[in-house]
Simulated assay, not measured.
Amino acid sequence: MNNVKLFTDSTCDLSREMLAEHDISVVPLYIIFNGLSYKDSIDMDTSELYSKVEELGVLPKTAAPTPADFYEAFKPFIDEGKDILYIGLSSQLSSTIQNALLAAQEFPEGRVNVIDSLNLSTGVGILVMKAADMIREGLAAGEIAESMREMVPKVTTYFTIDTFEYLYKGGRCSAIQGLVGSMLQIKPITKLVDGKITVYDKQRGRKKVISSLLQQVQRDVERIDTSRLFVVNSFAEEDAVHIKQEIHNRFNVGNVEVTNAGCVISSHCGKKALGISYIIE
């Protein structure tokens, strides 16, 4: 029996079925409405999140798991003799990694391996799935952690939003920017660079956005690790399935998984957000 226990956080946006199949445990982030905290995808799902936003007219705050949350999650497995491998949300976007590192200090050195994905959503998830593959192969936690750190800069993630409403409510753009963006149907496409979100492209209209995402795949297709590519969406499953099919048809990438964004990612991106994640070899 392998003595490595794999953990991630709720922003990985992997399905419950995938998490269960590969024995991956999640330490959830928090969604906070009017001072009340909800564990992402445990106490509240994305549908309930959007209903709450419509009801209250405000976006929730989000918060990282505390060091105590991590300690309580890790300790039972440490006590069983397992080593922990934790892969989490970019340290440039959240204190999640910092808090995991604080918890790791409470255990003997080397027992808890914390990996900063420098990514979000399925950019985290694709690393987690790679780690799960290595655990099945029988690699030790330290070996996997070393491989993960080498793989982090090879993960490529693009994200697009469909509405400026959530950026405006979240204070990430002004009312004028939101109004102009909405009127012109401008859709920003972002890319994770060194753990931070940067605007990579802007397109007018949904069809051009999807075309732009597919162009990114086409540009990298000769170097993509075809063992796994993710398309993530927040209430945009039809578009996500379309992108999956186009990737199959155009680029002969065999394993394309469609997943649904959880509450934390959706609270920042809004409905109809789309993203793609893959690894460059």
Results as ranks from 00 to 15, higher is better:
residue 146 E to S: 14
residue 229 L to Y: 11
residue 39 K to A: 06
residue 116 D to V: 07
residue 76 P to E: 08
residue 174 S to E: 11
residue 114 V to R: 07
residue 185 Q to W: 00
residue 48 E to W: 07
residue 184 L to W: 03
residue 177 Q to I: 11
residue 215 Q to G: 14
residue 106 E to D: 13
residue 69 D to M: 13
residue 123 G to D: 05
residue 1 M to I: 09
residue 78 I to M: 11
residue 274 L to S: 00
residue 242 H to F: 15
residue 169 K to Q: 08
residue 142 G to C: 14
residue 55 E to S: 08
residue 11 T to G: 00
residue 167 L to H: 13
residue 232 V to Q: 06
residue 99 N to L: 12
residue 139 L to H: 14
residue 11 T to K: 03
residue 151 M to A: 13
residue 227 S to K: 15
residue 276 I to S: 06
residue 170 G to F: 00
residue 100 A to G: 15
residue 151 M to P: 09
residue 189 I to N: 06
residue 188 P to I: 03
residue 180 V to W: 11
residue 252 N to P: 08
residue 199 V to K: 15
residue 93 L to Y: 01
residue 58 V to R: 04
residue 268 H to K: 04
residue 192 L to H: 04
residue 9 D to Q: 06
residue 243 I to H: 05
residue 78 I to W: 07
residue 255 N to C: 10
residue 65 P to G: 08
residue 170 G to P: 02
residue 9 D to E: 08
residue 110 G to S: 08
residue 43 D to S: 12
residue 99 N to C: 12
residue 218 Q to V: 05
residue 277 S to Q: 04
residue 58 V to A: 01
residue 261 A to L: 07
residue 25 S to V: 08
residue 49 L to T: 01
residue 57 G to I: 01
residue 230 F to A: 09
residue 195 G to T: 09
residue 94 S to Y: 03
residue 236 A to W: 02
residue 26 V to C: 00
residue 153 P to C: 14
residue 14 L to Q: 06
residue 154 K to W: 04
residue 26 V to P: 06
residue 241 V to A: 11
residue 56 L to D: 11
residue 38 Y to M: 09
residue 171 G to Q: 00
residue 101 L to W: 05
residue 221 V to H: 12
residue 119 N to M: 05
residue 100 A to R: 07
residue 267 S to F: 00
residue 237 E to D: 01
